[in-house]
Design a protein around this nucleic acid. Sequence first.
DNA 1: ACGGAAATTGTGAGCGTTAACATTCGAGGT
DNA 2: ACCTCGAATGTTAACGCTCACAATTTCCGT
Lengths: 344, 344
Amino acid sequence: MGIESAGTEQRQPVMADVAKLAGVSHQTVSRVLNGAPHVRPDTRDRVLAAIRELDYRPNSAARALVTRRSQTLGVVSFDSTLYGPASMLDGIEQAARSAGYFVSVTSLRSLDGRSVQEAVDRLRDQGVEGVVVIAPQTSAVSAVARLSSSVPVVAVGSGNQTQVPMVSVGNRFGAGDATRHLLDLGHRTVHHVAGPANWLESKDREEGWRRTLEAAGAPVPEVERGDWSARSGYHAGLRIAELPDVTAVFCANDHMALGLLRALNEGGRSVPEEISVVGFDDIPEAAYFIPPLTTVRQDFGELGKRALELLLGELEGDARPSPRHVRIQPELVLRRSVAPVVRR
Amino acid sequence: MGIESAGTEQRQPVMADVAKLAGVSHQTVSRVLNGAPHVRPDTRDRVLAAIRELDYRPNSAARALVTRRSQTLGVVSFDSTLYGPASMLDGIEQAARSAGYFVSVTSLRSLDGRSVQEAVDRLRDQGVEGVVVIAPQTSAVSAVARLSSSVPVVAVGSGNQTQVPMVSVGNRFGAGDATRHLLDLGHRTVHHVAGPANWLESKDREEGWRRTLEAAGAPVPEVERGDWSARSGYHAGLRIAELPDVTAVFCANDHMALGLLRALNEGGRSVPEEISVVGFDDIPEAAYFIPPLTTVRQDFGELGKRALELLLGELEGDARPSPRHVRIQPELVLRRSVAPVVRR
DNA sequence: ACGGAAATTGTGAGCGTTAACATTCGAGGT
DNA sequence: ACCTCGAATGTTAACGCTCACAATTTCCGT
């Protein structure tokens, strides 16, 4: 009560109302709204004034109906609670907004083919002009690949699918870099705490690690597998702390590295003096772990932005030559969790 | 090439096409689509078959135009890269989806009045039926309060605004709880690392802390102020580590607590033996800090969900009696970063 | 002052749905 | 067999906008 609109509950003004007030045709109103040429300045001003006076807002549904463009893009993401997806989503949204698009989000709990298909269908039924799928899991990527959709879809992930335009991170490269750095410091080999087996990120990082060890002729220890969470890293760490000859561990992400550090700390294994640890992602907190974590930085925001640019290319570019695959290379960030091995 | 649709680039089928194929009027198609009564079962089946055969999809813009409902809700959030906003967003999206709504997101960089107003306007111009504003800053809340908007808006934050329906967390309560717990353990007083001054969360947590100290007759030390980041917590920690008589610190969030722990560790002050530390939020990683962090848990996902329910109430409930303010109480989670003080 | 092109404005027809009302069909009662 | 009434279906008119084209003006050069 009080502020509530009091009886003046007229219907929203429409273009015709503006036209009448400005003394022009509705088409002229449409013209000034869309910045069409051939409108005399004073006419334009009159229309603009009428618009302001009535506080007129164009009806987007009507516009979408006739133009067949919704100004909306869809994003299907997986657990956008995680830092990576959340940041990508953020990057996508920023880029979309500055390109004049709205973003409609669907965050999946499970990333099997059916869910992805369903989500994309739902989005397309709503009328989105294109979709970005944040598809980190193997199943999702193949689902996207065989997506029978009439709207353009791009994926952001790490695979090598060529069916679908995609932006990906050089996970193998980054993991190799990290591993090599540890070997160069004199470590005989490097242990690995991997992510879930069905994530492409996991697979690629593990492969980068493995190949680097093999190339260096280093033994390849058994992999510990986590689920990205600090909790799983902790449990992996408990197991690793049991092994007597570990001097270096590469974790597939920073959160697991956090758990690992905790487990090593509890096990009385000092980092980096006894054991060096490297993570992946460079989340903002990584620099404040105990000790500060050496990790492989990837810029999720940039990733999202690039994905959106790719989608816009598909969308607006009638010309085909827009690149179908963008790759972003991560970068090793050195901090105190890594040290040269001391030969005993 | 290959999978691409080959020449069969007919226009999308519309309701009339389905009607013709099924041998009924378009209105009957509309009826089965909307589950209207008085459709003979075999007619319905025929229509359904036609729909399937043509792979017909209703045009949402046309529907929105005539029904004046877009099935879409808007969310304006602040830096959805942070754990809190991201989780709320996630909760909102889940709840919205299961209620049959789409979610259109706008993530702001700055939360001044103008930005919020702009974001809400943009969303409403797009035709959203309601908006959730994740408005943690003072400026945002007042902006929301004086939002001249024709769409229902609910806020999720921590203020006591009554203008706008809102769901909030008992920040004062949680902070008080944490502080009292420390006092009960024998600490003479509790230091505080606060969040940014213009955030309501900061204000409320600080106030909860201060009042509890005052009520206990404990001295109120000067506040250290951070910006929620681990980095700022670290710097606050460096300063605190200088103070000789600190035995307990309450951080306004877990990330700053992480930085604080690092600084104390570097300064050779052991936690919890010399100094007890409590955080706020209970992010998933908090249990894996060194040492595991005692903190005040708030369920962001639930928060988002409740906000959405509130919005739906505003939206669909023609009855006014839907509550205008939902409050969620956080809960103290005890972990090893806290210990009784040892009298010297 | 006149023809014609360019600039400016208006008119009418959809876009694909749903809402409102009209029509037809079929069964039961007398 | 006739009338009534509800069930089932069809018809027509919006919804608010843009597009295509028509109509009107204006501005030049000659």
